[in-house]
């Protein structure tokens, strides 16, 4: 870990000012940043500790919905009574991730900004375009069991590791940010990005911008939802494939639907066309399979991760059945519903 200047501002404007140097990193729960600093992957000259900022509330938004502060921990979010009641999909996804200790420290803003688990990104003695632009991608043609099958580029095949963000994508949350240019909101779909030719950019935050809150829209799909996560052991492991589904069922038909995938792309993966094709239809296995087909169109394996394509297809079908039946996946009972 390199030496750095540590600052602990008390208020947002000060934090934004300190964060605008281009060499600064915001420190919240620390669970990802400190890890990356120990690996010398992150080498900020300044660390701006934002833990004193007043971003720890969960409040109602006019017209329905909840605003979740960026510094609310993952655990406090998952166990908040309002979140549990209205957004059980989000709770489930959060509780599927990491460990209780990590969830107690990790914040919601930090969860959005956590970086890939790609082996090459993490090992500074290997090539990685995300870490050092121009080095090449070690994972292409390398060990890529955990890598992307969708939306990858010749520059980068990393995946986004978050579980929470998969649920937020399905919920169509809105990210509130503040930066040198002031405040703005980013639809969740636009927050993370695909690697393209700039794989070092995980998201669309402008330099110095800070996530302040996440707005959850009124529709929480509390009756029909699921978060299904498949991984290499039954807990405390990153997703190989995960599926978040939010569904509204009216008169036996799919009235509204969101599907987001984790572990398969550089961002939570959605295909609104595949969702649209299901609206108005009666839930059936054929319909679910068609949806899976639509979501995975163009999926491409890299060798070690080829299995993710059939795994994702089956996981999508199962997750849709779980949501339609109103039997969401438990994150404790490891039997898959």
């Amino acid at each position: 870990m390199n030496p750095f200047v540590y600052a602990r501002p008390d208020a947002l404007p000060e934090a934004v000012r300190l964060g605008a140097t281009g060499r600064a990193a915001f420190l919240a729960g620390g669970t990802n940043l400190v890890d990356l600093m120990k690996e010398n992957v992150a080498r900020p000259a300044e660390v701006v500790d934002i833990n004193r900022l007043a971003l720890r509330d969960i409040v109602e938004i006019d017209g329905g919905g909840l605003r979740i502060g960026a510094l609310v921990t993952n655990a406090d979010t998952a166990y908040d009574e309002r979140v549990r009641r209205r957004y059980p999909l989000l709770c489930s996804a959060i509780l599927a991730g990491a460990s209780p200790q990590l969830r107690n420290a990790a914040t919601n803003g930090g969860n959005l900004n956590q970086r890939t688990r790609c082996y090459y990104f993490y090992d500074v003695q290997t090539p990685c375009n995300k870490r050092e632009p121009g080095q090449g991608c070690g994972a292409i043609g390398g060990a890529n069991r955990i890598h992307a099958i969708l939306g990858a580029s010749p520059q980068c095949i990393a995946t986004h590791p978050s579980d929470m963000c998969v649920a937020l994508a399905a919920l169509e949350a809105v990210v509130r940010v503040t930066g040198p240019q002031g405040e703005r909101t980013i639809p969740f779909e636009d927050y993370h990005r695909l690697p393209g030719n700039e794989p070092w950019k995980d998201n669309t935050l402008a330099p110095g911008e800070l996530v302040t809150a996440i707005d959850l829209p009124p529709e929480g799909f509390a009756a029909h939802h699921t978060y299904l996560k498949l991984r290499d052991r039954l807990s405390y492991a990153f997703a190989l494939v995960s599926v978040a589904v939010g569904m509204r069922v009216e008169e036996g038909r799919v009235a509204d639907l969101r599907i987001a995938l984790g572990g398969v792309a550089h961002k939570p993966w959605r295909r609104p066309q595949a969702e649209a094709a299901m609206r108005g239809q009666a839930p059936s296995r054929e319909l679910f399979e068609a949806a899976a087909q639509g979501l995975l169109e163009g999926a491409m394996g890299q060798g070690d991760n080829d299995f993710k394509i059939p795994l994702a297809r089956r996981a999508i079908v199962r997750a849709l059945s779980q949501a339609a039946a109103g039997t969401p996946q438990s994150q404790t009972d490891k039997r898959i519903a």
């Binding site: 688990r117 082996y119 090459y120 993490y122 090992d123 003695q125 290997t126 070690g138 043609g141 390398g142 060990a143 069991r145 955990i146 290499d232 052991r233 039954l234 807990s235 405390y236 492991a237 990153f238 490891k334």
Partner: peptide, 24 residues
């Protein structure tokens, strides 16, 4: 897991080299 080109173990940590956890 090895990278053949680099001749290097790649999952050299406890997040990616999985040993059984309580849940297992």
């Amino acid at each position: 897991l090895a990278d053949r080109k680099l001749g290097r173990w790649m999952n050299h940590n406890l997040a990616e080299y999985h040993v059984p956890a309580h849940a297992d």
